[in-house]
Nucleic acid binder design. Structure first.
Lengths: 124, 124
DNA sequence: TATTTGTTATACTGTTTATATAACAAATAT
DNA sequence: ATATTTGTTATATAAACAGTATAACAAATA
């Protein structure tokens, strides 16, 4: 799995990790049942602290993407609460699309980008 | 203009302000040329500190939604950098839609919500 | 002349982020 | 059996951020 941390970003490292792991699941680079590296291995690998990785894993667990097991380690396990996910998506889109609309981006242009991104997920 | 701050939210107050002002522009509740309340008035009105409002206004200025003038106050003025806005939208959508895809939300369902939100902006 | 604007400066508190050690319990490998 | 590897938990520390509190300035207005 490819992970790249931007240490100059204003986005927290553990959030960059979280987002990239979710993206990797969406593109099927990793999938249900797969193991993630141990918190120590990944931390050493990237060059960050163990607790920063642990924070990302803990959030992914809370959000329903991971199960953490002392014997098996961190395993991808999607908790399928679609209704909740829809509501969260709606709230995020409200902000994203309000910005877009103010900047003269049309509904069609938004749709086109949605399609492009979904193609990133669906090509196998 | 209707502004509601959730003091228990994990989202910073100045970001809640920023997002709601952008949303108000998108729905044409406020528009190009309109004045926002002075930083002191709005702060008193909501019951927060002047600098928190000032931070929201400063960000809105940097992002191209406001002009700040010592004589006229804060005035809505959209800086139309559409290309930049498109790229920012694409990056935000990548995270939002990756989450959605993992939770089995289809491309069509995403499109439907985009349409619903755009209707919030376009009905007059 | 007094008030109102955005703006800037300083100071303080509390929270968050990231790091650093350390230890524990359960499982695995040697 | 022993050592190692898991996630997990507990402290501690430094830096950055969020929010508040005063205060003052320059330009414009009442």
């Amino acid at each position: 799995m490819y992970l790249k941390i931007d240490f100059n970003s204003d986005e927290a490292i553990y959030m960059q990790l979280r987002n990239q792991i979710i993206y990797s699941i969406a593109t099927s680079e990793i999938q249900e049942g797969d193991n993630l590296p141990s918190v120590r291995d990944l931390a050493d690998n990237i060059g960050i602290n163990m607790h920063t990785v642990n924070k990302a894993y803990t959030i992914l667990k809370q959000e329903g993407y991971l199960k953490l097991d002392r014997r098996k380690g961190a395993v991808i396990a999607i908790d399928m609460n679609k209704m909740q996910a829809m509501e969260e998506m709606r709230e995020e889109l409200r902000v994203t699309l309000a910005k877009a609309f103010c900047k003269n981006i049309s509904c069609k242009e938004a749709h086109d980008i949605v399609d492009e991104i979904f193609k990133e997920f669906e090509r196998r």
